[in-house]
Amino acid sequence: MIEIKNLTKRYGQITAVNNLNFTVEKGEILGFLGPNGAGKSTTMKIITGYISSTEGSVKVNGYDIMENPREAKRSIGFLPEQPPLYLDMTVYDYLDFVSDLKSVDKKKKAGQIRDIMELVKIGDHKGRLIKNLSKGYKQRVGLAQALIGNPEVLILDEPTVGLDPKQIIEIRKLIKALGNEHTIILSSHILPEVSAVCERVVIINKGEIAAVDTPENLSKGLGDSSRLSITIAGPKPSIISSIKEIYGVKYVEAGAEREKDAFTYIVESDKNVDVRRPIFYAMAKAGYPIIELKSLSMSLEDIFLQLTTEEKEVEA
């Protein structure tokens, strides 16, 4: 549905996006993740044809955005970082204008606007001037605008920014529901959002792709060690030394005191070796009761940080 090949954007000395390659399949919700300034917005602006790429091509629905902009743009709905609103218009007039702009059939127009307003829950505010709406409602009007014309592809640049937690959950649900009929690219720097909504994640850093995978695979497959959090009662030094002796353990660190004389230890071990049983027997033998044991899977957050900071070290 969306095909991005060798996409590069330079302006002046700065390379904002460097040789990006990825495709998005029909009906997929793709998360576009990266720290601020990584090139997410730039990439989205290129995909939607707002700015031009220096090199490479973007095909949407089979149409090249540079060569057949009209056809390509017809199948895209775009919600930029700052919703493109006319503050002096009422919600309804604005959506009516957007419908005309996207040449929606005159007969279907009113019905479509009504349905979309219902969907994003702004029906009660249709007569209000956009400038008088709260940030959350402005964001919804922006989303409504992207949905006008029923485009097959939705490009949403940080759609939940500035919303309150309840609204965030609503919008996420809505995006997920929209994913049944639309192909969606969603950018964010909020990780739980991406793992909650997206089926696949592209992590981008400094204009380059750092990783592409499902959120689950990313949190499972990265790194070559697994981590445990164990709370054990007993003297700290001897516990640490006896855990260290166990085959497969790479690193032990004592954490906070959880109860009297019981500390939490973070144990990093080889991914292929299960150290939980050996630790249990060792502690039982030494007479130090294990109060709690749980495995820590790396959160997307850890992976994200790891990927984006590793990159820095390579460059430095």
């Binding site: 602006k45 939607t48 044809g49 707002y50 902009p69 743009k73 895209i76 493109p84 006319y86 040449s103």
Partner: peptide, 14 residues
């Protein structure tokens, strides 16, 4: 200034 240019330039209008 207010960002609505994005709407115009990304809609199927030349």
């Amino acid at each position: 200034k207010n960002g609505s240019e994005v709407l115009l330039l990304t809609s199927p209008v030349n």
